[in-house]
């Protein structure tokens, strides 16, 4: 219990977000939307971490989320750079040869 909020509510919300994230990552075909769902999964983990941290009364949970957000930002920059490199190819050569969005 964190004040009036029971911990199970927090975990339920984060579990639901995580499930949606996994669904998005597995079912979508557009590389950008897959990446968005992965960001959502990481946010679900953040929510769970903060919930646990608050329930334990320590600030360790927040420290971890602080690092996770920094890592997600770095990951986003590298990922989008890869997308740029890929899109530069698909504009020049035939798309269905390397079939960018499906593998």
């Amino acid at each position: 219990m964190i004040g009036p909020i029971p911990l199970s509510h927090v975990l339920l919300a984060s579990g639901a977000l995580f499930a949606i994230g996994v669904a998005g990552a597995l079912l979508r075909r557009n590389a950008i939307q897959i990446f968005l769902s992965i960001e959502l999964m990481m946010n679900a983990a953040n929510l769970a971490l903060i919930g646990y941290g608050a329930a334990l009364g320590t600030q360790q949970g927040q420290i971890i989320v602080f690092f996770v957000i920094a890592i997600a930002a770095a990951e986003a920059s590298v990922g989008l750079a890869i997308f740029v490199a890929i899109f530069r190819h698909t504009e020049t050569i035939d798309v269905n040869k390397i079939n960018l969005l499906k593998w």
């Binding site: 975990l11 984060s14 995580f18 999964m41 990481m42 679900a44 983990a45 953040n46 769970a48 971490l49 919930g51 646990y52 360790q60 949970g61 971890i64 996770v68």
Partner: peptide, 9 residues
């Protein structure tokens, strides 16, 4: 990461 958070919990 999600596994880590559950184990941390």
């Amino acid at each position: 990461l999600y596994g880590l958070s559950l184990v941390y919990g």
